[in-house]
Design a binder for these strands. Structure first.
Lengths: 168, 168
DNA sequence: TAGTTTGTTCAGTTATGGCTGAACAAAAAA
DNA sequence: TTTTTTGTTCAGCCATAACTGAACAAACTA
């Protein structure tokens, strides 16, 4: 039995020996990924889609995603494209098939770190601006801003190192 | 002129020579900290309070916070306590004064990383559960879960290293 | 004692953004 | 051509949670 290539029919195998209990575990995992995403300020459905692709690496068709996760096609469109834009999943096409397919990206976690890095760089810009526009007499303020910049510089460096360590 | 010890009167110095322009820079910074916090899934007011303490290290009284940031006492109570719970600011008292005062914690950024670590450990628990409850036959799924666990393990280690590097 | 000051809690309002159905456009099939 | 398939977009509904005003409790002051 191959769960991977028949992702679309897993939910129909209720009566199977491994079926019910394992199905519970899978849906719970996907649901937890949704909640976890929501905690991180990401749409719940994006988290569920990500979880779905952890379980079934893909390729999975657009229509399959909507049916399996029981979400509207509009939500599939929005969230899958959003995840693809982040480099976490990627859109592919299959010859002789008009549908869009998605599959897990090769290294989804590296992309997640890269998103963090972007956020940190935005914060560094804010700190730079503050440093420029706040009068020099405010020594203690500038000292705290400098401390903050050192922190973000170190954090950026640590995450770049992490990317290298996890890379090929 | 000492901006630090008279945090409560900065906004009143509109006519001063350094006043108007620098005041703009400060409020813009505080406002950007609010927006940045909101992006991170934290209440905007919490971000503003944090920004305020970057500018004026404190101690700042409860009432001052409400007045300076033009927010309700209820919001001060909720958000300041929340930041204090995260270890980013701390509540102190001054002898002969009934008011609560807050000041920036000694190393607010270390505390922020520690919060990240907690989240990552929650994710590790979720992965552990999934690993336990998903049938062993799903080899590809277990491989992806293992990859994910390696990622979080490395991320936790990197951040713990970062904490050490930034520590005293 | 009654009256202030001070912080917390909670019900209610408001703002934000997620999700959906429906309308739509593009492209293939009939 | 008309019809069907497929994905996108957008207006509107809904859920979540941020924020506030008001009521409250505790502790000080008079």
């Amino acid at each position: 039995m191959d769960y991977i290539s028949e992702a679309g029919h897993v939910s129909a195998r209720q009566g199977h020996e491994t079926g019910k209990r394992s199905q519970e575990g899978i849906t719970r995992f996907i649901e937890q990924m949704g909640l976890s995403a929501q905690q991180d300020g990401v749409a719940r459905i994006s988290g569920r889609i990500f979880g779905y692709f952890i379980v079934h690496g893909g390729p999975v068709s657009f229509a399959q995603l909507a049916e399996e996760l029981q979400i509207s096609r509009a939500s599939v469109s929005t969230n899958a494209r959003s995840l693809a834009a982040l480099g976490i999943i990627e859109r592919i096409t299959l010859p002789g098939d008009r549908q869009d397919y998605y599959q897990l990206a090769v290294s989804p976690f590296l992309r997640m770190i890269e998103s963090y890095l972007v956020r940190m760089q935005q914060m560094q810009n804010i700190l730079q601006q503050a440093d420029d526009s706040i009068p020099a007499e405010m020594h203690a303020t500038h000292a705290r801003l400098a401390q903050m910049r050192r922190f973000y510089a170190a954090a950026v460096q640590a995450n770049q190192q992490l990317i290298e360590d996890l890379g090929p």
